[in-house]
């Protein structure tokens, strides 16, 4: 199949990569860019394991065609920490033992990050709604919700003290 060049901003850096135009963003990331943090759980937009952030919005990368990201900003789990330093959500997921098999976790953290980027201090109900498109079969969600609440709570306290 003919391949086309796709240029976009991936985790803050400009990239140019060739792929068939029928490739999804998920396959582009995993098979052409070596970023396997976004997972293929259903490839129909039903499980959320491939969630990445596209221009600030959480999307299921399996439903985005690769050419659609031309010139846009894509954030993945590999890009949210700062080198060895973890993103606060990643640290909270460790502290709260929120990962079990871990396969849903990159997508879950990206969905949570998109939520907190929009609103740094969501309520518990808003967190649950914000993560309701991301399936997890191991944890029952309890510790995942708690981990996001911890980060949201710190932010809420911060804004209250201002």
């Amino acid at each position: 199949m003919n391949e086309i060049a796709i240029r976009f901003i991936l985790n803050g850096k400009e990239v140019s990569v060739k792929a068939p135009p029928t490739f999804t963003l998920l396959r582009l990331l995993r098979e052409r860019l070596g970023l396997t943090g976004a997972k293929a759980g259903c490839e129909r937009g039903e499980c959320g394991a491939c969630t990445v952030i596209l221009d600030g919005e959480p999307v299921t990368a399996c439903l985005v065609l690769a050419p659609q990201v031309e010139g846009r900003r894509v954030e993945t789990i590999e890009g949210i920490g700062n080198g060895e330093e973890l993103h606060p959500l990643q640290q909270a997921f460790i502290d709260e033992s929120a990962a079990q098999c871990g396969y849903c976790i990159p997508g879950m953290i990206m969905a949570a990050k998109a939520l907190l980027d929009r609103d740094p201090g969501p309520s518990r109900e808003e967190i649950k709604t914000g993560l309701s498109g991301n399936l997890c079969r191991c944890t029952g969600y309890t510790k995942i919700i708690k981990a996001v609440e911890v980060v949201a709570g710190k932010s809420r306290k911060g804004s209250e003290s201002c």
Partner: peptide, 15 residues
């Protein structure tokens, strides 16, 4: 804390 937690939250775990 889980011994595999850091790799799992950073997407580094290779399945």
């Amino acid at each position: 804390p889980r011994v595999d937690a850091r790799d799992k939250v950073t997407g580094k775990t290779v399945y």
